[in-house]
Simulated assay, not measured.
Amino acid sequence: MSAKATDASFDETSFTVHLDNGSALRVPLDWFPTPRAATPGQRRDVRISASGAGLHWDQLNEDISVSGLMHDAERWHLEERLKSVDRAVKIEADDL
């Protein structure tokens, strides 16, 4: 069973989707050009589907699935961790 959205909040550079399991996903607006280009008021006018599986902006004609966000966030987190490991390996090799 996957987590479902219960709320969403926004700042200038990202949005956070609060999940029913108590966790939250913070997502860069850069991942989504339409919400990024929207006004703060348009971003806040998000509707969470009855099932909690998706976010929809009527004004923007934009839909984002929670499972897609979770998948993308997991991939992004893994990529960031791999970059950290790669930087650490380069630093150690440079010290030799």
Score class of each variant (00 low, 15 high):
M1A: 09
M1W: 00
S2C: 04
A3E: 07
A3K: 09
A5F: 08
A5Q: 03
A8F: 00
A8M: 09
F10M: 06
T13H: 13
S14K: 11
S14A: 12
F15I: 05
L19E: 02
N21Y: 05
G22H: 03
S23H: 15
A24I: 01
L25D: 10
V27G: 00
W31C: 04
W31P: 02
W31N: 11
P33E: 15
T34M: 10
A37K: 12
A38E: 02
A38R: 01
P40S: 08
Q42N: 02
Q42T: 00
R44G: 05
R44Y: 05
V46F: 09
V46P: 08
R47Q: 14
I48Q: 04
I48A: 01
S51C: 03
S51H: 09
A53D: 15
L55F: 02
L55P: 06
H56R: 10
H56E: 08
D58T: 11
D58Q: 11
Q59T: 14
L60G: 01
L60F: 00
L60P: 02
L60S: 01
E62A: 09
D63M: 08
V66N: 02
V66P: 00
V66S: 01
S67A: 14
G68I: 07
M70C: 07
A73C: 03
E79R: 13
E80I: 06
E80Q: 15
R81I: 09
L82G: 00
L82Y: 07
L82C: 06
K83R: 13
K83Y: 03
S84P: 00
V85F: 12
V85C: 05
R87D: 08
E92V: 12
E92L: 15
E92N: 11
E92F: 13
A93N: 14
D94C: 05
D95L: 15
